[in-house]
């Protein structure tokens, strides 16, 4: 290598090649952005309630125990398909809220030897927002992931 490549050649390959790959990446990123907005997610059902629910999800730092579409901490169950797991129909906003409120209201269980979820004092409207968010996430086209309802 000493004879065939000089430092300045290596440097030029680094800068030129990196720019090349950055350009490809940005192009594919733009296409992916479009694909998400137009194809894999539903803009019409992305209501203000869903957005408010996402905000609650962030304010309570839910992701530091749970995963959502596989990302987060691995301490508690996957939640992108929780509504499917609970057998809630995609359009059943009231049912989703009731199930979520019943579950979260019973936390922490205090059962010895079982992982504890904190108690979050959500209002009825907040339960609805959070439930709508989880319902909406369940509709994202994730190329078939997760493999089964266990998440």
């Amino acid at each position: 290598m000493r004879e065939t490549m000089t430092k300045s050649m290596a440097r030029n390959i680094f800068y030129g090649g990196s720019l090349f790959f950055i350009a490809i990446f940005l192009g594919l990123s733009a296409q992916s952005h479009r694909y998400i907005v137009t194809t894999s997610t539903n803009a019409e059902t992305l209501t203000p309630s869903v957005v408010a629910g996402k905000r609650i999800w962030e304010q309570k730092a839910c992701i530091d125990c749970h995963t959502i579409i596989g990302e987060g901490a691995y301490f508690a169950p996957e939640l992108s398909n929780v509504m499917t797991r609970w057998g809630i129909e995609p359009g059943d906003h009231a049912g989703a809220k009731d199930a979520l409120a019943a579950w979260m209201g019973a936390m922490p269980s205090g059962v010895e030897g079982r992982r504890q979820m904190p108690h979050f004092d959500l209002t009825d409207a907040q339960y609805q927002d959070l439930a709508d968010f989880l319902l909406w996430v369940d509709t994202i086209d994730t190329q078939g992931w997760p493999p089964n309802d266990a998440g």
Partner: peptide
């Protein structure tokens, strides 16, 4: 010289390697 070779390899693989996070999140 090694340094340039290594960082070139890092970025050539790593930038598009981002794709391994784009499998199941709604991306194509």
């Amino acid at each position: 010289k090694w340094l340039y070779v290594i960082v070139a390899l890092s970025l050539f693989s790593g930038i598009l390697g981002t794709g391994h996070h784009y499998y199941w999140i709604g991306t194509p």
